[in-house]
Nucleic acid binder design. Structure first.
Lengths: 354, 354
DNA sequence: ATGGGTTACTAAACCGCTATAGTCAGCAGG
DNA sequence: CCTGCTGACTATAGCGGTTTAGTAACCCAT
């Protein structure tokens, strides 16, 4: 009807483009582009003039136009792939995301997030993101043995940083890794020192790398430290599975004096089972959990946990990915923040049994 | 050196474009575009041929190109703005995100996520997203009284759906709302029926709309149902604040026989305080929590909660936003999924006090 | 046979930005 | 005076789609 630019009250204003800046500065759009991207081809005075106009006009690059003209999508991708139920309860993801965001503030880079329901689903997402030019790189969590996701990411050449439990092989995408075996050793040595010789383990999904590492660490420890008994039971990280596994462990003829849980949900579910079965914590049994969250501190007795700085982990992973985007070669893997033991009320010296 | 297309082993393959499809089908790129977008202008046979080639080639639209020409960014935005600590523990956000993702599967629309540290921060994000054409619309949560975010979103004309506690005023962006006053009434009537006449309330931040509604509902109920005593204490949703508020309530000369918590973190923290102060749940005091999460079910005693389908909420909010994107007018607000009371072990008839 | 209306397509402009090739003035060197 | 070079720009060709304005072929009615 009327010129939308001048119609008062129209909802959406027109966005500022470099053409507007060019017009106002009396130069070509190329000059504006050079100035805004810190490239040679404009005099210092002109550059400053252009920058100040851009600032005045609150100009922001049209991310699609940038992405289209070759360079960057200006976005990182993260796919969450865990049972929906688990997702919400664990603080791991939100902490990780908070950390990523810290790394991203200041840069004009955003984050794309998706929830996948299977590995195949996740792979499809990576493919879509890649062919759709939606993200410049992705963060992959929970690496598996012979992870098909990494093969795909390798083949399409989508820059990746893995958050995992050991350095990635040379010539593959870098990993930010946490030493799960070492952390498990820390817990086991502590329990051993408290006199525990029968140790149960309510583990995560068997195909996750860090599950394997923890299970292995327990087996090895049982061997070298002459435990009387030890057992790892895999779960899907759900509360129900955690409760069931705990019931199984507590129903042994001679029950364990300590149980290690692979995350807080399993641990809290297990704690509920101890109450249900009349086993006192920590008098009759000691509980330790991986993945320290607020929940672990809030339940009674508060849980002894392996604390790790997940926010810092996310931040460092994102920074590593940003660096990888700017690098022609593969960057080396890095060791992530250490896991430390936060001792609370759920662990104690083993009682002299009658 | 050599043609990257034919060089074996090069990491990144070339992306498929509609030009490839057009060449293979022997038609123009326009015809391909028509076919892929279900627009008239191509015969059914040609359309089918084009579609099958696109499928074979695993073509995906270049989101940036689409965004640039078609004016759609192909992405929704969500800004999380709560204390970092809270973020992780509450399942609300992850559930909401899961729901949004459900609504988004199938569409070729993605989700942009950011964490903000203040309202101003959040507003800046919306501005950036809008001028950078990064998102087509946003989901706004936790509306406040006289919310400045909504003013900004209104003025820049960025399509919005609010997740709130009452319908939005006409001619503003639609709200998907949960009836907090009604839900609070449900809890209060139940507690009243159990004989409770002294009811405490550990609330959320005072400037959130739903906090105000709940506080108001309690006051009104206290008046009409002749409670002997009632009090709402605001918190910042943190566990520490929840514990402190609970201590305050339990330190009354004559303490409440029931406490309502505005979310599970507060409730679990409060439950810890009852243990610490030797107040038995539910014998001495009944606890009810809003925002049912796994945590509420896992602690002992399991918490009676107001259960709501947060995943469904996210899904419906996203669908409403998608519909709003396609609509010229403002869509009407909708009532969200109902809140229902899940009674567990933390509530009981009030004991006859001596 | 002519005009008018479909139908099925193609050509080309355009979205905002980047990047390459040109243009032009000014200056140095032979 | 002509050539060559440099610095500061401009013109313009994409990037991969969408969309508008043709256009040619065909059918039907007059």
């Amino acid at each position: 009807m009327t010129d939308p630019d001048t119609t008062p009250g129209t909802a959406a204003g027109r966005r500022i483009t470099i053409t507007d800046i060019a017009a106002r500065a009396g130069v070509s759009t190329s000059a504006v582009s050079f100035a805004l991207n810190d490239k040679p081809g404009v005099s210092p005075e002109t550059r400053e003039r252009i920058l100040s106009i851009a600032r005045d006009l609150r100009w922001r690059p049209h991310s699609a136009a940038r992405a289209l003209s070759g360079s960057r999508a200006g976005s990182l991708g993260l796919v969450l792939n865990r049972p929906a139920r688990t997702l919400g309860t664990e603080s791991f993801f939100s902490d990780l995301i908070s950390g990523i965001q810290i790394a991203l503030t200041g840069t004009h880079i955003g984050m794309n997030l998706t929830v996948a329901r299977s590995v195949q689903d996740e792979i499809d997402t990576y493919r879509d993101w890649w062919s759709g030019h939606r993200v410049d790189g992705v963060l992959v969590i929970d690496p598996r043995t012979d992870d098909p996701r990494l093969d795909v990411l390798e083949s399409i050449g989508l820059p990746t940083v893995v958050v995992g439990s050991h350095p990635s092989p040379p010539n593959s995408w870098p990993t930010l890794w946490l030493d799960d075996a070492d952390a498990t050793g820390t817990v086991l040595r502590y329990l051993h020192a408290l006199g525990h010789r029968r140790i149960g383990h309510v583990a995560g999904p068997a195909d996750l790398e860090h599950t394997a590492l923890r299970v292995e660490a327990l087996q090895e420890f049982a061997h070298t430290a002459d435990l009387q008994w030890s057992q790892s039971l895999p779960t899907d990280y759900s509360a129900d599975a955690g409760a069931a596994a705990t019931r199984t462990l507590l129903s042994q003829r001679e029950r364990p004096s300590a149980i290690i849980f692979d995350n807080d949900i399993l641990a809290v579910a297990g704690l509920g089972v101890t109450a249900e079965m009349g086993v006192a914590v920590p008098r009759d049994i000691s509980l330790v959990s991986f993945d320290d969250s607020t929940m672990a501190q809030l339940v009674r007795p508060a849980l002894t946990t392996l604390t790790r700085d997940t926010v810092g982990l996310g931040e460092r992973a994102a920074r590593l990915l940003l660096a990888q985007l700017d690098s022609a070669e593969r960057l080396p893997s890095q060791a992530g923040p250490p896991l430390t033991l936060s001792v609370r009320a759920s662990t104690a010296r083993v009682a002299h049994s009658g």
